[in-house]
Amino acid sequence: MDMENQTRVLELVEKVGKENVVVVLGGAEAEASGLAAETVTTGDPTFAGPLTGVQLELPVYHIFELKDIIPEDIWEDQVSMMEMVLDVDEIIKEVATYRERNGG
């Protein structure tokens, strides 16, 4: 996760409290999505950004895991094409690993 986004997540958590924050990822690839999930749970694994050593333990989901709660027309419009293209199962598995490790 890039520095800018790490900063934005940290600022938001400080402002509204981590119980009011859910992170939704849109990564196109399993490994990168997993890294982002790790960053907002156990901290930046690359030791480069402001979340280095910061365990926010935020609930984190990939957009593909939330299909059931998204209105069908919006899903159709915004996500359905990429659902066809990307390795959905692999991405969900990777993100879920970090969420579960987090006890979430």
């Binding site: 196109a28 359905s80 094409m81 990429m82 066809m84 293209v85």
Partner: peptide
Amino acid sequence: ANYKMIGALGVK
């Protein structure tokens, strides 16, 4: 990834 997107749009 780009080709898959073009193809997926074709399917849609």
